[in-house]
């Protein structure tokens, strides 16, 4: 090799090494950059949230401006509406997911449903709020807990459909064939074999759906609106209903210090709920894999 040739190849080698180092540095920086922001957010949330935590959060209702209080009615409203949303949304999602995975895997209808479901899954939740407003609030003539629950249910369905379908597709076909060969009608195959085999995955999906709706704010703003008092009589769902995210929004954007503190406490509660639910979901998923 001539000296010149060896020098160019050395230059090339050097340049490639340099490019590689720059690349490694840049992506490490990206990772640090991302983690730093996320630590800031969680740290800020912990600092401001923990200092605002107190037992009265769970026993007292949201205060009028300038006085102290808790978040009891908001927490109660959120739990009630989420519960109804899950009770309504889960069966529909479960059956629709079952249809996609068991009955019409490759059909044209299944293709359309799958496509539309994935769009709904990431469609802006505020648009869902407008839809429920037109559908429920306008018809009823007033804001109500039912409307809030309906909006949340519409958000639950696509999440459950997607996970149910994915989990059912993981069930080996041999199980279905064996059950059919024993003479089980298809609905028995589905109910007693595939649903059972995919149970952990389906529950994971429901947990993720709960995690998703527990922080949803936009669709509740003009369906359930908010309520500064308790309304735990029979007609409670027929009245406007307080919810944790909506209270956070109103309190945080208002000018009062006490309300800011409550907003932070609420934000911490929501984040803790979401994190616990996601970790539970993840544990379930892992348990199934092993």
């Amino acid at each position: 090799m001539t000296v010149a040739a060896s020098r160019t190849s050395q230059m090339l080698y050097f340049r490639r090494r340099l490019a590689n180092t720059v690349f490694i540095l840049l992506s490490t920086c990206a990772a640090i950059f991302g983690l730093v922001w996320l630590t800031f957010i969680l740290g800020g949330l912990l600092v401001d949230g923990v200092s605002a935590l107190s037992p009265t959060l769970f026993t007292e209702i949201t205060p009028p401006p300038g006085s102290k209080g808790g978040l009891a009615n908001a927490i109660g409203g959120s739990i009630l509406m989420s519960l109804i949303a899950v009770l309504v949304g889960t069966p529909i999602g479960l059956f629709a997911g079952t249809y996609l995975a068991e009955y019409a895997r490759h059909g044209r209808l299944a293709f359309v449903v799958r496509f539309v479901n994935d769009i709904l899954l990431s469609a802006p939740s505020i648009v869902i709020g407008l839809f429920v407003y037109e559908l429920v609030v306008v018809r009823m003539g007033h804001f109500s807990g039912w409307a809030g629950a309906a909006a949340l249910a519409v958000i639950v369905i696509p999440v459950v459909v997607r996970t149910t379908e994915n989990m059912l597709l993981l069930v080996p076909n041999g199980l279905r064939e064996a059950a059919s060969a024993l003479g089980a009608p298809q609905n028995f195959v589905i109910k007693l074999v595939t649903w059972k085999a995919a149970r952990a995955g389906i529950i994971t999906g429901i947990l993720l759906a709960v995690a998703r709706i527990s922080g949803e704010t936009a669709p509740l703003l003009f369906t359930a609106l908010g309520n500064s008092g308790w309304s735990w009589d029979a007609g409670a769902m027929n009245q406007p209903m307080a919810s944790l995210p909506a209270v956070i929004y109103t309190f945080a954007t208002g000018p009062y210090e006490e309300q800011h503190a409550l907003a932070w406490a609420g934000a911490l509660l929501i984040t803790a709920t979401v994190l616990v639910l996601s970790i539970l979901a993840r544990l379930l998923e892992n348990k199934k894999r092993t």
Binding site: F40, I41, G44, L45, L208, A211, R212, S214, G215, E216, T217, P245, I248, Y249, A252, A263, W264, A267, I270, T271, V274, L275, S278
Partner: peptide, 11 residues
């Protein structure tokens, strides 16, 4: 990725 957007908002 699962943290609700209102948390980012308030922060």
């Amino acid at each position: 990725a699962g943290i609700p957007s209102i948390i980012y908002g308030i922060w």
